[in-house]
């Protein structure tokens, strides 16, 4: 009996002690729009790693792609009065109520990856955004295409223009809209002649992209010379479809064809996922626009630390636009 009591006492004490071990160890809610998203998985892992440099930890919430769920989670989180909330919103247009709630509760709010309207960010003194400029990714994507054109003609059927298919993400999604819009504009205004076959909507999804493309290949007259995708997942899905249609790979040997081969179709993605890098290494995917999640995570965690310690934000490693917004540059990624 006495021994049991002693044990109990020891457990209780050790519990109290461990709770006291890191005084002021803040737990920051990390709200992710959808943990099924490959890119967000990478981003989350990199954020958790980056936070180890600081005296706080993340508590991850998954909204499953539903703003409704995220709203409810947000309401609950605010009630617990955390020192700060880091959020990757589901719906960037409709987040102003969240900003309002956080402001009422006096909780600093850091958005990342999906950018709320600038007017909403500026409406509250303690709201920040860390992300990338969507249009920049498209511009780099175009640069990649131009680099390829220096090497290859791409006009396989020699009709004077390059038959191009754009894979678009979710309509209304900021990245999907901007990337599609910008790349479209750049291709149209290019000195090279691009024949834009269509903008195929595949919702950022790999399997969706494969399905859509296979559907197109059922038409024997379908001929494509360039595929530009809003993200890596759809780009890889497109490659899956090309391979299944007897392109990209020598059907007899199973070896990946050389870029100069007639049946090799250039595909360009955005994000720089590990699977995409692998695909580039194998010679399938031509290139991607590297969304530097590691760098972004460093910047986000640095910003959080500064906000928690109320340090001068001008001392951050990246400049703040409008005093609230940090854009991280995209980088071109090719097989050397």
């Amino acid at each position: 009996m006495k021994r049991k009591l002693m044990l109990l006492l020891m457990f209780t004490l050790s519990g109290i002690l461990s709770a006291c071990q890191t005084p002021g160890d803040a737990v920051i809610p990390l709200m992710i729009y959808d943990q099924d998203d490959l890119f967000m998985q990478t981003f989350e892992a990199s954020l958790l790693e980056a936070s180890q440099a600081y005296g706080y930890t993340f508590d991850v919430y998954d909204a499953n792609g539903s703003q409704l769920i995220q709203n409810n989670q947000f309401k609950d989180i605010v009630a617990e009065n955390p020192p700060l909330i880091l959020i990757n919103p589901v719906d960037r247009v409709g987040v102003y109520p969240l900003i309002e709630l956080a402001e009422q509760a006096g909780i600093p709010l850091v958005f990342f990856n999906r950018e709320p309207l600038r007017e909403d960010i500026l409406s509250s003194p303690d709201t920040y955004y860390v992300g990338s400029e969507a249009s920049q990714s498209a511009r780099i994507q175009y640069e990649l295409i131009e680099m390829l054109l220096e090497e290859l003609a791409l006009d396989v059927n020699q009709d004077g223009s390059i038959q191009t298919l754009i894979l678009k993400g979710q309509p209304g999604h900021q990245d999907a809209e901007i990337r599609t819009d910008v790349i479209q504009t750049l291709l149209m205004s290019s000195e090279h002649a691009f024949d834009l076959l269509d903008v195929e909507v595949a919702y950022f999804d790999r399997q969706e992209a494969t399905g859509r493309l296979l559907q197109r290949f059922t038409d024997e007259t379908f001929h494509v010379e360039l595929i530009v995708s809003n993200n890596d997942a759809m780009a890889l899905g497109a490659i899956d479809a090309l391979v299944q249609s007897g392109l990209m790979v020598n059907p007899e040997t199973g070896d990946v064809l050389d870029r100069s081969a007639e049946n090799w179709v250039p595909v360009v993605g955005i994000d720089g996922l590990d699977v995409a890098i692998d695909s580039i290494d194998r010679g399938l995917l031509y290139g991607t626009v590297f969304h530097n999640t590691d760098l972004m995570s460093d910047v986000i965690t640095e910003l959080i630390e500064a906000l928690l310690t109320e340090a001068d934000l001008n001392g951050l490693s990246q400049p703040l636009m409008d005093g609230r917004v940090i854009y991280i540059d995209y980088e071109a990624y090719l097989d050397d």
Binding site: Q67, L68, N71, V90, D91, V93, G94, V95, Y96, P97, G172
Partner: peptide, 10 residues
């Protein structure tokens, strides 16, 4: 009270 996605309405 819920937001309606991709709008500014509640």
């Amino acid at each position: 009270i819920q937001t309606i996605p991709q709008t500014r309405f509640r």
